[in-house]
Design a protein around this nucleic acid. Structure first.
Lengths: 368, 368
DNA sequence: TTGAAAGCGCTAACAA
DNA sequence: TTGTTAGCGCTTTCAA
């Protein structure tokens, strides 16, 4: 037995019950009674009946008739790291009052799923599409643009689409700030962990890393930089790959790195796991700095220095841009780069402000 | 200027172009050409044209006509803790092949938003609603049930709705296993942190804690248990409340606890932060065990013992139940409790397997 | 082997 | 002050 949508109360039923025309009901339910100059008595009666019958409008019919869905598609890579949580919170703040609803989808780094999700979103006639870009490939995105649906990249953009709309954050400043911090706390041999993608806001992190080192007169060594493919299946796998890269860097004959700049989430988690597994003391053997949208990453026990990504504000801004482009598509391209927060210093050296002696592990300052 | 849905290619346009009737196109596009015995030539021509015109079906029209949305609503409390990520991954596995799409919404512990989101989902005529229950209040949920839309709670259920469908996990076994572990590693004064809710699978954790202690002949002290209100605004606030509870427990005259069972996510993070801020050594001063769906929680640096929640499998199962109820509503109520994973022991005592000496902080085992 | 036609629930232009 | 009407794009029954 196939279950059908419950035969819900329609506007016609209410009209019949109230002894008025469907159109009248429609106007009243949409708060346009004034415009039509309807009698207050009629309005009340209709509202009362709608309420009593538990009327719930049928959005499909409404969209079809109005030729707009009041919907914005949001395609995430995943829902981890609080990224999505905070981005969606920000979007809601903006979309809600404008009577738009976000349609959330996830591609899990799988191009095939991404295509499917985009298709589904287009079938639902989203009026704009917010999208965390997956690969360097512009193919599927161009299709969206061709259909006249405003596309806004979130968090990065694509080299191959110079006129794409995007809302990103200042990865360059973030990377600089993280690396500079490591230098300031006395580190001289800083390793880099990054993603193996040529997206602009990914690439800029390595560039900033190099520049900051050079400005400080420090060495940039190829064998201290590692780039990893992104993907979902690699959650465990990736941990292994990152670990082996770290083993390579740290296992060699000296000099080996005394700090790690993990340029994004997941890399930082993997790096911590690997370093700890190798028996390194943090920050004695390796200080870790990262850019992250994951609050736990800033936990004192981990002792990592973190530049926080302003995810919620990104969500707000990208929603604003989406609305702007829905109403004024002629304003494309809109390209915004948001500033990121100040670095939160983790533990730095064992002999830092709290005055512990060199060599002592300092997960807890001890209370004796 | 208000932007309208782009005048997309319709089935009628394709029909005209191909010189056939709209109905023919519809059949072909739905893969029912066989059933109608259409000429292969016609089929090919129509498909070619649809492709050339970049036809994308209009889901609103389709839903309206078919009187079903092919959609399942999923209402989360939030998108943190990888809960949503893994639950959605599991659901996709099941819903995708059945040609259902999940509509994801978030209520952020706000009853007003929850009502709004449920309303929005009902307007979109979801065929079932999967829902992480918010409060102890059944009001809004009953409305859903009354409309004939199958409602399935995820992760817990409500006392006030004994006939509600739900898919939960075995919180009792998880709690037992966590507390037993703390006892096994020699702890005798175990504190409890929990949520101040009377939902069955929340309540059972405290009960299991008490029972396990009693079975071991240990003392259950009221002042070693703390219950916290749940809510979003309290992210920081809650941290403070948890911290003050922990200060109260640990700051007193002896005896004070030597372990903490944080019965859920967020509580564990807060507890770690508070303990570390107070300068306690883990696990010397307090061993921490918890139930969590957050992988970082199992990180060796944190040293916490974790019972993992089988979130992805919950996602799969709840999707299966949703489909079952869509097709066979007469099978309600369906109530399932999934087993949870084995406890992953964190650091236990300072003098554990790795042979460190008593009193040494052991965030890192040291490599010298 | 194909076409015609009705109608899903709603809105908005036009009449009355 | 209210009603009539014509679709929005699609599916599906019935007729040819």
């Amino acid at each position: 037995m196939i279950r059908k949508t419950p035969n819900s109360v329609t506007i016609a039923a209410i009209a019949k019950e109230a002894g008025v025309a469907p159109a009248t009901v429609s106007f009243i339910l949409n708060g346009k009674a004034q415009d039509r100059g309807l009698a207050e008595k009629t309005v009340q009666r209709v509202l009362e009946i709608a309420d009593r019958l538990h009327y719930v409008p049928n959005e499909a019919a409404r969209s079809l008739r109005r030729q707009r869905s009041a919907t914005v598609g949001v395609l995430f890579a995943h829902l981890r790291d609080e990224w999505a949580d905070r981005a969606v919170a920000g979007m809601r703040e903006i979309l809600g009052p404008a009577d738009y609803v976000p349609l959330i989808a996830v591609h899990r780094f799988n191009p095939e799923w991404e295509r499917q999700e985009i298709q589904t979103l287009l079938e639902r006639r989203v009026e704009a599409l917010i999208c965390v870009p997956l690969t360097d490939d512009a193919g599927d995105y161009e299709r969206v643009v061709k259909r006249g649906v405003p596309l806004i990249f979130l968090g990065d953009t694509l080299e191959g689409m110079p006129h794409a709309n995007f809302v990103a954050w200042d990865a360059e400043a973030a990377a600089r700030s993280a690396v500079r911090h490591l230098i300031e706390i006395g580190r001289r041999r800083i390793a880099f962990l990054g993603w193996n993608l040529s997206r602009p806001f990914i690439k800029v992190r390595y560039a900033a890393y190099c520049q900051t080192l050079e400005e400080a007169g420090l060495e940039v060594r190829d064998e201290w930089a590692a780039f990893f493919p992104i993907g979902e299946s690699s959650a465990f796998q990736r941990g292994e790959i990152v670990a082996s890269a770290i083993r390579r860097m740290f296992g060699r004959n000296r000099p080996r790195p005394d700090a790690v700049f993990a340029s994004g989430d997941m890399l930082n988690t993997d790096a911590l796991a690997a370093l700890s597994e190798m028996g390194f003391r943090l920050p004695d053997d390796a200080a870790v700095a990262t850019i992250s949208s994951q609050p736990l990453m800033g936990h004192p026990l981990l002792g990592v220095s973190v530049v926080p990504v302003p995810t919620m504000e990104l969500g707000r801004e990208v929603a604003r841009v989406a609305l702007e482009l829905i109403h004024h598509p002629e304003n494309a391209p809109i390209q915004r780069v948001m500033p990121c927060g100040d670095l939160q210093a983790g533990r730095t050296t064992p002999a830092d402000a709290s005055g512990r002696r060199q060599g002592e592990a300092i997960a807890f300052s001890g209370r004796a």
